[in-house]
Simulated assay, not measured.
Amino acid sequence: MSGTGQMDLLIDHAGHPWLNGSSALRHRLGRPSPDVDMAGFVVRDLGFARLRLGQGKIRLTIRAGRLEFPTLEAVVRFLLKESWRRLVIEHSEPIPRFEIFGEVEEAVARLKDLSVPSAALARGNPYSSQELSLDRLGQSGQESLQALLHLWRARRGQLAPNQIIGLTPASLKPRITLARMRPSDGANGSRALVEHIGPEYRAFDACWALNAIGRDLEDQPDPVYGAQSARGYHEVAALGQPRLELVDAVIDVPGRPVKRSRYDRLMLPWRSRGELFVSGASILRSSFALEPDETQAARS
C-alpha cells in the first residue's frame, strides 16, 4: 500500500521492521535490483512477515511453518499497538488463500498455529497434547464438537457404533476415529482396535485407512505418532470422562514429506451392549510440510 496514513512493512527473523522497497534491505540480502519482487521473496523463501495497514484494515502475508518466534512476537506487538477493525491473513504458498479476523485474540491464536514448531517439539518430542476446558466448546468455530458432546450427554454415553458415526455432525465425519476397547494381556491393560476411521486423515494414504479396521490404533505408518495418539484413547477409556485437547504433532510417514499438524480433538467414551468404545473427533487448525532443515531435526 502507499499513500498518507498507510504503511507497508517487512518483519525479518529478528523481529526488525523494514520498509518494503528498502534499498538497505536489498543490499543486505544481496538483491539490489528493484526489479526483484523483494516482498514475495522474503516472505516465501526467508520466512519474513509482510504487514500492510490502511483504512482500518491490516493485511498480513506469511508462509505457514516459516514464522519464527521473534517475527511472530513483532507482529503481535504491531497488532496490539495499531488501531484496526479487520485483519486479513494471506497465505503465500502453495496457493494464495485468505483468512479474516476481527479480534486480536483469535488472530494471535491462529498465528501460533502457523508458526515454526518449537525446537523441543521437532527434536525431543514430536507429539504434544494439552488438555483444554470443555467450556472452550462454546467458542466460535467449535459448534460441531459442542454438538457431539451434547449428543454424548443426551444419550448418557450409550450408543451403538453405527449410531455414533451416523449421528456425528456432518462436518466432523471426515475426521472421526472410533476405537473398540478390549482387554489386553500386555502392560497397557487395554487394546484400542480401529472400528472406523474418517477419510480425511491425509497424513496417511487411503489403503492404510482401509486396512486399519480391526487393527491396533498404535499400528500406524508413523509408529511414534500412532503410540502417542492412541494413548489418549486408553486414558479416556480408563477415566470414563470426555476430554478436549490441543494436539501439536510432527508426523513422519516413510516416502512422504514430514508434516506438522495442530488440531483440537474431542474424545468421548461410549458403551454399547457391554462393550466400550472411544471416539476421537478433531478440527484441524493447521497442517503443512516442514522445510528440509526442520525435517532433519525431527528425524534426528
Rank of each mutant, 00 (worst) to 15 (best):
L111I: 02
A237Y: 06
P199Y: 09
A212W: 03
A64D: 12
R63M: 09
N188A: 14
N162A: 14
G166E: 14
I164F: 09
F288R: 03
L51C: 13
Y263I: 01
V278G: 08
L10E: 05
L111V: 00
P223H: 04
A281S: 15
I11R: 06
R215F: 06
R262L: 13
S129Y: 01
L137Y: 06
Y233F: 15
R215S: 14
N125F: 08
R260A: 04
L25H: 06
V247L: 10
G54D: 06
N211Q: 14
W270A: 10
P70S: 07
V253W: 02
A120M: 07
Y263H: 15
R26M: 03
P96N: 10
G255N: 10
D12Y: 04
Y201L: 13
V253T: 11
A74H: 05
E143P: 00
H91W: 06
L172T: 02
G226Y: 00
H91Q: 15
I176G: 04
L290Y: 00
E235T: 08
F277W: 13
S33R: 11
P223S: 12
P269K: 12
E245W: 04
S129N: 07
R273E: 15
V250G: 02
L210S: 10
M7D: 08
E90N: 09
G138H: 10
L137I: 07
G21I: 01
A230T: 10
R155D: 11
L151K: 07
Q158Y: 01
V108F: 04
L132T: 02
T71H: 07
P96S: 13
N211E: 15
A209H: 11
R299C: 07
G198A: 11
E90A: 12
Q296C: 05
R50P: 00
L167E: 15
G214D: 09
L9E: 05
L159G: 08
F48P: 05
R299Q: 14
R175I: 07
G232N: 07
S23H: 10
R180H: 14
G15V: 03
S133H: 01
V194F: 06
L72S: 04
E68Q: 13
V108I: 15
L25C: 03
P70K: 09
E294P: 00
A192R: 04
V76C: 14
P242V: 07
A24C: 00
A24S: 10
G280Q: 13
V250R: 03
I176D: 03
I11K: 04
R256V: 00
H13T: 08
F98M: 12
L178K: 05
S128A: 14
P96A: 15
I283S: 04
G21W: 03
G40D: 12
Y263M: 12
G226K: 06
C207V: 10
Q228D: 13
